[in-house]
Computed example of a mutant assay.
Amino acid sequence: MSMLKFLLRRTLQGVFVIWGVVTVLFGLRAVSPGDPASLMLGQGATQELVERVREVEGLNEPIYVQYADYLGSLVRGDLGYSWRSEREVEMMVLERVPATIELAVAATVIALLIAVPLGVVSATRRGTASDYGATLFSLLGISTPNFWLGLMLILVLGVWYGIPYPSLSGSGSVPIGVGFVDLPTGRRAVGFGEALMAIVQEGSFGEMGLWLKHITLPAITLGTYFTALITRLTRSGMIDEFGKPYVTATQSKGLPGVLVRYKHVLRNTMIPIITVLGLQMGTLMGGAVITETVFNWPGLGLRLIDALGVRDWPLMQGIILFIAIMFVTINIVVDALYTYLDPQVSVE
């Protein structure tokens, strides 16, 4: 099967997955208690006004008609309007995407910078204190809930040691859009791209420093589980590669151990790591909900929690649908990349 046919088949499978997500979301809204029209208008609305809204929004139609209308709107790219803010859902979703992507990428970078060297050390020094320490770190990282870790980081660094961290309280900064405004000085850093442009155009590193100050603890919190996972995967993969004949052959030729370890063994170990990396990026996008809430990070997760609190169903559906689309897309890209990196993997 050619790569084009493989991508078409995976895309078709992804469409069915998205359709399943849409159906489940619509079903949950249909069976949830409460009248959507009353939720849109609030408690002070008259019954006449509620009935009028129900008629305008099509809420008095049979459930299958509402479902067909909803699918038709999605096909046209119309996610509807938020019941509370009366804004287009797609705009409310897209304006929070950069912050969530920044957090997911930062967590991934931190995980790779820590996990790969730690896994290499653990694999090459089996049975030593370094190996036991890396194994213990992996066990703790996988077992620790990220929301608890975030709260502990805030408690230890922000409260006990008094390290200033603007996003921990309202005294230093407040979240605006996809960035933060520093109230005392009026300085604003709107995401990584804005901070990078400040360096290129003005030679100023202040915005980048402010961005790093805000994103460090959330990224560590979100990336801890990922770090532990990659550490264990790197260790087990390298141990498996060390036992293969090509390693013995390269060592018998007199190649330095460092060259064998990093050019051959680690390179072959990176193939499954890349696969897990892609899959975890989708997981990080969806799993950032709690981390964003703990640190007041202005991403999709925080907006989803806010929409959940006021039962803004169109906004909730739009955010979850976007996360599902991102997850499916990342899976397809990773599958294609995996078959490209490893010719032994069939696209059948």
Rank of each mutant, 00 (worst) to 15 (best):
T269V: 15
V75F: 06
L196G: 03
L279V: 11
M285D: 09
T248M: 12
I274Q: 08
A324Q: 10
T108R: 00
N268M: 09
P166T: 05
P98T: 09
I319F: 06
D35K: 02
M40R: 14
A30E: 15
A123N: 00
A68W: 13
S252C: 08
T46Y: 01
G170P: 05
Q47D: 13
A106N: 00
Y338M: 05
M208S: 04
E88Y: 06
T108H: 01
A107D: 06
L103N: 12
L284D: 04
R311N: 12
P218I: 10
G77C: 07
F16W: 14
W160E: 14
I323P: 08
I239K: 03
P33V: 08
L315E: 11
R87D: 15
T224P: 00
L341G: 05
L279W: 01
T234S: 05
I18G: 07
Y64L: 15
A189I: 00
G223A: 03
V178H: 14
V116I: 06
V260C: 09
F295D: 06
S252W: 04
V328N: 09
P272K: 10
P184E: 10
A198N: 13
T293N: 14
G191T: 03
D312G: 06
G309M: 13
V116Y: 04
Q344V: 06
L321Y: 09
S143R: 04
L139W: 10
D335P: 08
I320R: 03
E90M: 15
R235S: 03
T100K: 06
I274R: 06
F192R: 05
L25W: 06
I163N: 02
M326K: 00
T275Y: 04
L304G: 07
M285Y: 07
A198V: 06
L321V: 06
A68T: 11
M281K: 01
E202M: 10
W211G: 01
V22M: 14
V89L: 08
K253V: 00
K263Y: 09
F26E: 04
I114Q: 00
V89Y: 08
L139D: 08
F205P: 04
S82F: 01
I110C: 11
L12K: 02
T227R: 03
M281Y: 10
G141T: 02
R87K: 15
N60C: 03
A288M: 09
R267I: 00
F6W: 07
I325E: 11
T269F: 04
G72S: 14
R267Y: 02
M316S: 11
T234A: 08
L8M: 13
L136Y: 10
Y225E: 13
V105K: 02
I330A: 12
P98S: 08
I63P: 07
V174Q: 08
Q317R: 13
L8A: 13
L277F: 13
N296P: 05
G286E: 09
T23G: 04
G141D: 01
